[in-house]
Amino acid sequence: MKHLPSERHTLSILVDNEAGVLARIVGLFSARGYNIESLTVADVSDDHAVSRITVVTNGPPPVIDQIMAQLDRLVPVHKVVDLTDWGPHVEREMALVKVAGVGDKRVEALRLADIFRARPVDTSTASFVFEVSGSSEKVNQFIALMREVGLVEVARTGVVAIARGAEAV
């Protein structure tokens, strides 16, 4: 069943916010040979008891099912939701993009950033740091364009995602 075409899935995992949980999740992926495209984690509850992990993974549908089942049986996992299966959802990512240069390239970088609604959050006479957010695709495009105008460094958050509509997962 590993020969079936691979699909990209975004998973939301609600876990106890305690030491070692992230290692458990990441360890499960590496031990069983599952892929991680991106991973984000942060505490999301008022009492700091629950963290939300967003994992973008890929694999054939039976492997995705196995990933869900394996995650679900970990003791500190509250809930696992496959947002890709769930339905419409929003995925966003943020990147900090450092561009160095002077003259025309610098002007062009600013102009492109404006089109992408990327905000300069740091500047010197020879550089900018832009903050850009959006879908991974948009972030990729922005970074590709910046390469031509003096890209020197990128930091990305990885994907966070949430279902559309009134309902909570």
Partner: peptide
């Protein structure tokens, strides 16, 4: 009793 046993190797 373990959901992860289902369809792991045999559908």
């Amino acid at each position: 009793i373990d959901r992860s046993s289902f369809n792991k190797t045999v559908r």
